[in-house]
Computed example of a mutant assay.
Amino acid sequence: MNDGDFLLSIIKKLDVEEGDWEKLYSNLEDNSILYKYTPSDSKKGYLFYWSNQEPMSQIEEVDNLVDNEIELSIVPQDTYLILFTRIEALKEKQYKKIIEVEENEFRYKKYVCYYTEEELIEMKNKIEEGFVIDKDFLRDNSHFIDEKLFAFIYRMIIKVPIIKMNFEQKELEEFQSLYEIEKESEKKYQPDELNEMEQKVFSVIPDKLNSDLVATDIVDNLISDIYGDDLNEYLS
């Protein structure tokens, strides 16, 4: 199993919208895979791509596959492209590249789920040791703070639209700790956008006791203000 298939296996264990997976392309020589996910009750389509390239190069690779290798109809407003990108660390140069890709909605709406080699190794080691990742991960592990594993999975939840965002109050109480973990791992560079995202989350937690309302506000703020999408459109 290559790293791309491994990452997708983690997503499939989480609580995702009902739908069907289809492998569109896989090449072990150039280390790349492309999957499509079709929700059961939505016209939207989600493409998941992994390769050992930077985000802009990954988009070119996907475009080439769609144009020349596979039969796939692209409806720009209904097609999402999730890129799995390995980075050494989230520094200014890499972060600007990620933002540039995500803000460009030509042909697909794009999300870059970045990770480090250290995070990936830690994830694999934990699973080999018997650590369980399933659809109740957040509910069952809200007390679990591991600098690599928890932050990585939380990043997946934010970056992958098909993962359901069903929060309990105790999970919301852990958000600040999760962001502190992210800040610690990225302390050499703090982009303004990360701080803005952080404040959008923190600002809604102390003022509301209803966890459903808090969760709605968090997701709405993250999507509408950072990704530019409507909440209902994002989750549909």
Results as ranks from 00 to 15, higher is better:
58 Q>W: 04
132 V>S: 09
133 I>Q: 01
27 N>I: 03
67 D>R: 12
98 I>A: 01
171 E>Q: 11
40 S>T: 09
10 I>A: 05
52 N>M: 05
152 F>Q: 03
232 N>R: 15
181 I>N: 07
101 V>P: 00
81 L>C: 06
3 D>C: 06
200 K>I: 12
71 E>D: 13
116 T>K: 00
185 S>Y: 12
191 P>Y: 01
207 D>G: 08
119 E>G: 02
10 I>G: 03
54 E>D: 14
193 E>M: 11
231 L>V: 15
131 F>L: 09
140 D>P: 03
125 N>A: 08
223 I>D: 02
174 E>H: 13
58 Q>R: 04
43 K>Q: 15
177 S>N: 14
73 S>T: 13
3 D>V: 06
77 Q>L: 12
125 N>E: 15
225 D>M: 15
58 Q>S: 08
47 L>T: 02
162 I>K: 00
157 I>H: 02
65 L>E: 03
75 V>K: 10
161 P>H: 02
193 E>K: 04
3 D>L: 06
185 S>I: 13
119 E>C: 06
18 E>S: 14
108 Y>C: 08
142 S>M: 06
40 S>L: 11
110 K>H: 09
58 Q>A: 11
47 L>G: 01
71 E>I: 15
129 E>N: 10
4 G>H: 00
132 V>Q: 13
105 E>A: 14
114 Y>A: 14
50 W>S: 08
195 N>I: 15
234 Y>W: 08
143 H>S: 14
90 L>W: 07
87 I>K: 02
165 M>Y: 10
110 K>Q: 11
4 G>D: 01
79 T>Q: 03
184 E>P: 03
66 V>G: 00
209 L>W: 10
205 I>R: 02
157 I>M: 08
23 K>W: 12
57 S>I: 08
154 Y>F: 09
193 E>Q: 13
210 N>K: 07
125 N>K: 12
211 S>Y: 08
66 V>D: 01
134 D>L: 03
131 F>G: 03
